[in-house]
Computed example of a mutant assay.
Amino acid sequence: MAACGGILALAAAVPGARAAEADAMALLKGMTSYVSAQQELSFRFDADLEVVTSDQQRLTLASSGSVSLDRPGRIRFSRSSGFADLESVFDGSTFTLLGKNANVYMQVPIKGSLETLVDELKDKYRRPLPAADLLLPKAYAELTEGVTDVKDLGSGVVGGVECDHLAFRKKDVDFQIWIAQGDRPYPCRYVITSRTVPRSPQYSIQVSDWKTGSAAVGQNFSFVPPAGARAISHDELKTIKSMGELPSNYILKGNP
């Protein structure tokens, strides 16, 4: 017990010196500047979304996918899990969401940049893009707004890549980020912890196969419906379980 207590005390005493804070902020700034400067990029990801049940059990939903981006306003991304297989395409004027399991797709007109798309999907359709806040030109301002504590935790290794490990605290959330060391400081892992929900569930995303410029893959942003695919409205989308954010056997608290 004494040894365990010592470990806990050591963990709680991670220093937050101003020099370390300045280094952490500089590393985060360097990452966001590097990412926003990439005209073309692509990567694969593995994501974990934690949910808390009504009896306070914490469960994890795992998914994988890919993202391809061509600034200022074209993106293709996919996400596959045990209950959904989705692909989305934005060509600067139209957003398309394809549900491969149900072979249906929804299209809505959205004109503008990636930033416009991300805001509209999040605010109007409640469909945030994976790790989108790391890809936008305003990423540094968004990530650091309201930060109350900053820690530089030294080095860590993610997927075989040595990274700088940073931790930040805001009023309602904590987040950690692991940034690849060297001349390609891309985000290797990003973890968000909600402190306002019981048992503090997390969302985490781990990035792999990071490519930029002419090496970026998936740079086709036109949508061609698969054979037999049916167009649906946004209202109908809500009724198709295989296109939801949760498996069909999960029921949100307060819903029938």
Rank of each mutant, 00 (worst) to 15 (best):
P185Y: 10
L10H: 01
I240D: 15
A9K: 13
T32N: 09
P109A: 11
C163A: 03
E87Q: 04
L114D: 01
L121T: 04
R58Q: 08
V35P: 06
D152Q: 04
R71M: 03
V14Y: 03
V197T: 08
K138F: 01
P109C: 09
T193M: 02
V224H: 00
I205K: 02
V89L: 00
G73K: 13
I7Y: 11
V197G: 05
V207E: 08
K122S: 14
A231P: 02
A20S: 05
F175P: 05
L121I: 11
D91K: 02
P130Q: 06
E40A: 06
A24M: 00
D209Y: 00
T96D: 03
L8V: 12
F77V: 07
Y203T: 15
A216V: 02
T116D: 10
E120W: 04
D55Y: 10
G82V: 03
A216H: 01
I240S: 08
S63T: 15
E245Q: 15
L143S: 13
A47K: 13
A229C: 09
K211E: 03
L59N: 11
T116I: 15
S93Q: 04
K100M: 08
A231D: 12
A19P: 04
R79I: 10
P187E: 02
V157G: 03
T32H: 03
E236P: 07
A167K: 06
E21R: 06
K170W: 08
R169N: 03
D183W: 11
T148H: 11
V147N: 07
C4N: 15
V150A: 12
S155M: 03
S63V: 14
A37C: 07
A11I: 01
E145L: 14
F45Q: 03
R169E: 13
P128C: 06
L135G: 02
C188L: 03
K170V: 05
E236I: 10
N220H: 01
A132F: 10
D46M: 05
N255R: 15
A19N: 13
S68W: 01
D149S: 13
E50S: 07
A141H: 09
P130C: 07
S204T: 10
D235A: 12
K151N: 01
G244I: 07
